[in-house]
Design a protein around this nucleic acid. Structure first.
Lengths: 244, 244
DNA sequence: ATTGTCAATTTATCATATAAATCGTGCTGT
DNA sequence: ACAGCACGATTTATATGATAAATTGACAAT
């Protein structure tokens, strides 16, 4: 029952629960099908045909087709005449698509995923810090120091420690001056936010201001190698906690 | 003139050149609009309405709508009733979508994009090599050596050098055992294949077999730090070519 | 000046018809 | 018996027209 307005549809309202993100029928459809795919609902049974989806959810074929096209654009499915729409293998999925990432995290989160996230950060953030040290963007470096100051304020109880920590790491990604690194903002924010929820161990652990400052100072000093090493140390600490 | 079959359309065939990837009208439309967006055709003028696109390209509204939906899924545009479809700011684009990346690299003045992407590889691949050295997946390491052998064969003219080079790097990403690193397989392959075609500079350069072997040996020897360093050296060489 | 109303524009949705691609089946000819 | 071809069935692809919903801007009323 994705149905919103009336129109002349005769579909009975008994299916669906298209989630929250239903700004319109197509978005709701996309969300419902996306979640269903990542949770493996079609691993054993075939993906439904246009007609079946339209009937099951009580929407027109236009809506189902446009939703399926969007899933195709995100790499989740592939449609062919006569053979129908098929769920693509996992490695074809675009994991860095915000929707895909969200669907995945809502259900499939685990320590395993968190470790993989953190290993990715171990690759990304040191390089971003090194680039930031090379780029010499004064305004961006100012932001890094401002977020560092925010971490200090958080330590005094004047700000949210987690939010400040996240902001610092995003500032470094931004200071790299490389749009590809900026794309990881969402991943980093997610990884840090959920770290807390999944490892009690980290809860007591307050991020070391000194080690964060070392990264900022190395960037300021235009020393890429030191920036890389200091940033790597930060992530290695997280990795130790996650790996146990 | 995206027109393929006949049907009863009366559109005159005078627009388009939807590129190569027109396995069907919608794909061709997606490709044409995607390229137009990344090359800035709509920076100064508004994005056309459904009706305008359909008329200009001689396709039905179904096709234009589905193409626009796919562009929406990739973060390039956003459609709203009455205001029409708008090109989203660059930060909203999903740069890790293979289509988006290809469009970016195919346009003129893409050296900047290529440099940024290579900087990303500088972060990713060394870490992947280090993880591979830790993971100790025998079968994956065998694949790495098989691709290395393929590079040797290519040097003797028995295989495609570019394809072999790409396959080696993908094998390392795969050997990391981390799905997020595996994600980069598609974009790395896309970036290397398209950028080589569009930049003459790198063309003559044949990759060093010895330096590639060093990476494989370090992984085999289970020496993460050496694997990381050797892989970094490989990318640094590419970076010199792009920067220089 | 603020508010409410209405018309216009554009996307969103529905419905239906036809084309194209592909798979399986069964026939046909040897 | 078997290879190949014709044909029907299924599913997506495309075209078309109609109506709904959302939003903007102009304009009128207070």
């Amino acid at each position: 029952m994705l149905q919103r307005g009336a129109m002349e549809s005769t579909a009975i309202e008994l299916e669906g629960q298209a989630g929250d993100a239903k700004r319109n029928l197509t978005q709701g459809m996309l969300d419902a099908l996306g979640k269903a795919i990542v949770t493996g609902r079609y691993d054993m049974r075939p993906f439904p045909t246009e007609a079946e989806i339209a009937r099951a959810y009580g929407v027109s074929r236009s809506v189902t087709r446009e939703a399926v096209k969007m899933l195709t654009a995100k790499g989740l499915v592939q449609a062919k005449p006569r053979q129908g729409t098929r769920v693509q293998p996992f490695q074809a999925w675009n994991l860095f698509d915000p929707d895909v990432l969200r669907w995945l995290l809502e259900r499939k989160f685990s320590i395993e995923v968190l470790r993989h996230f953190t290993q990715l950060r171990r690759g990304i953030e040191p390089e971003a810090a090194a680039l930031a040290a090379t780029a010499r963007d004064g305004a961006a470096i100012d932001t890094v120091y401002r977020e560092l100051e925010r971490m200090r304020a958080a330590e005094r109880g004047e700000d949210d420690p987690l939010a400040a920590d996240i902001a610092f790491h995003l500032a470094i990604l931004s200071a790299s001056g490389n749009p590809f690194f900026l794309q990881f903002s969402r991943v980093v924010a997610t990884a840090l936010t959920t770290s807390i929820r999944f490892t009690n161990r980290i809860k007591g652990h307050t991020a070391s201001i000194a080690e964060h400052r070392d990264v900022a100072d190395a960037i300021e000093a235009r020393d890429p190698e030191r920036a890389r090493a200091c940033a790597a140390l930060l992530i290695d600490n997280v990795l130790d906690l996650v790996d146990g």
